[in-house]
Design a protein around this nucleic acid. Sequence first.
DNA 1: CCAGGTCATTGGGAGCCCCAACGATAGCGA
DNA 2: TCGCTATCGTTGGGGCTCCCAATGACCTGG
Lengths: 156, 156
Amino acid sequence: MSETTRAPARIRSLPSWLLGRAAARGHRLVAEALAQVGMRMMHHAVLSAVAELGPVSQADLGRSLSIDPKDMVAILNDLQNDGLVTRAPDAKDRRKNAIALSPSGKRRLIQTESLGREANDELTAALTPAERTQLMDLLVRIVQQEEPCTETGPGG
Amino acid sequence: MSETTRAPARIRSLPSWLLGRAAARGHRLVAEALAQVGMRMMHHAVLSAVAELGPVSQADLGRSLSIDPKDMVAILNDLQNDGLVTRAPDAKDRRKNAIALSPSGKRRLIQTESLGREANDELTAALTPAERTQLMDLLVRIVQQEEPCTETGPGG
DNA sequence: CCAGGTCATTGGGAGCCCCAACGATAGCGA
DNA sequence: TCGCTATCGTTGGGGCTCCCAATGACCTGG
């Protein structure tokens, strides 16, 4: 078979298709890396978000990361069972849960951030640092199309 | 509302995350567009690939598009039921099915290609044509990392 | 003929995404 | 105070993509 099982140019020329393929590879690499510590991409994302946003409700967490509330429950159950986050009722608003990072969570986050970086380095191995920056810029502009603003005041 | 439901910078800085978000938006846009003719992204991809590769086996199709054989069966069942492709046993190799485009499929493909283009234009609306080209180039290089060769000999 | 590989098909399952509903709570106006 | 509306966490169902395994039919090489 000199046959090119090669790829249809018409499909390949669609950004949506390439994005899907590239995202699939990125997900695979990150998932493999995080599996070393028994975590998934979403686990790491939530852990990282909690670290940055401080004690935060599940709803805010979900909006920040575009995670479905249903999935958020499962993720936080996992993280809580592993002692990586605390889930306490918010005194000011008893509907909310205040999600915060535990000491274990801090330590785990250091690991997962390192693993995530490695995986992303491999993902973008074919790119120069400048190209990687360029890629991020382009992707941000694509993604931001669907979250027009939610402008956050600068002085918190 | 000084909504700081804003996004964790640490996660946002990961190419894998941005790729995932961008791909999700791309998939959503394309899926919405193709739903107008009762098709999904994979349907269009297969249809387009069949048009380019001519009569082709399901296995080759799957390898070209990174589609699981299991999913390929379902997709081709749909396309065949809609009369868009023909699925005939290959005379040379009776294991294979020769998938080919029907006249209806040709017409449908024209529609779906148009719809796909529109959706991708919306997806990349924030980008200049040059930036879009740049994005494609970067994505191609990321994706090609995992399909090293399949060398189609030039001098065949 | 036999062994090993490929092909289409079937099955199970994981992970991410979307929609809908529920009880509990908060905020507001009457 | 009583409703009304909205949000929060939770549960349920379902769709789409991707991965792994197995089967019977078929091709190739020995």
